[in-house]
Amino acid sequence: MSVQDLEKIFQDKIDADIRIEPKDWMPDAYRKTLVRQMSQHAHSEIVGMLPEANWITRAPTLRRKATLIAKVQDEAGHGLYLYSATETLGTGRDELLEQLHTGKAKYSSIFNYPTLTWADMGAIGWLVDGAAIMNQVPLCRASYGPYARAMVRICKEESFHQRQGFEILLTLSRGSEAQRRMCQDAINRWWWPSVMMFGPNDDASPNSAQSMQWKIKRFSNDELRQKFVDVSAEQVKILGMTLPDPDLVWNEDKQHYDFGAIDWDEFWNVIKGNGPCNKERLEARVKAHEDGAWVREAAMAYAEKVSRNSVKKEIA
């Protein structure tokens, strides 16, 4: 069969909403794009553990401590599903981690911002996980089977995290003067970076059309961003707090909120490595990996010994 025929079968399947599975033929560019997108997501989960793990040892109550550990542990689990799903495309975890550690692979820039107060645990859950859910729910219908199935499970847990985050902020918003200040301060710091999580404006997002055709992206960056702003602008009222955007106003004609200009200069700078925590986050990942090298070697050496001995036993 010619490549053209294979490509036609492939695109017909996608158009008919039939999932592509690991052993199916697929264009190299589709495979490559997916590996990049999925591994970026996996890396984001793993790096994303750090800003929240930062508060586990300082969580204010035993219940909060337990739920925060469980949440960060869920993120490790998401990383695991996504690395495994990426492996089905022929790229192993070691190679992907190497790309992360050398800075070749990217992860979500949001995790390059610091977590300065307990309220940040709430703001991350509400805004950052909220924005992630907007991005990820459509991916439960992504064309690549292992990816879509991983996303179903991830989205369920993420929406739980989002509710937890909102509840942290709600508790603070009903608390003391200092707690309300903490709550507003966290919203002020996390709002714009969260709005930026949807990526560049549609006219500056060159790969989007192809990804839409492949159904590994189902809504444009600006569509998703608008939806996020609309939802958040309403939810913040429940908290009795405000979003730090003087231009945020309901537009009756559009039936959407208008919002202010995004600081793209900051966006690109954080991507380039100039964010407040880029260096620390990556160093923490590299350190964990390097400090763990002897552990992984020992586990391998022991596993080999055990399998050698079991072979010996079988022969005897």
Partner: peptide
């Protein structure tokens, strides 16, 4: 819990 996010292998971090 001080290990969370810093384990030697992802599975063992969990």
């Amino acid at each position: 819990s001080e290990w969370t996010g810093h384990g030697p292998i992802l599975e063992q971090d969990i």
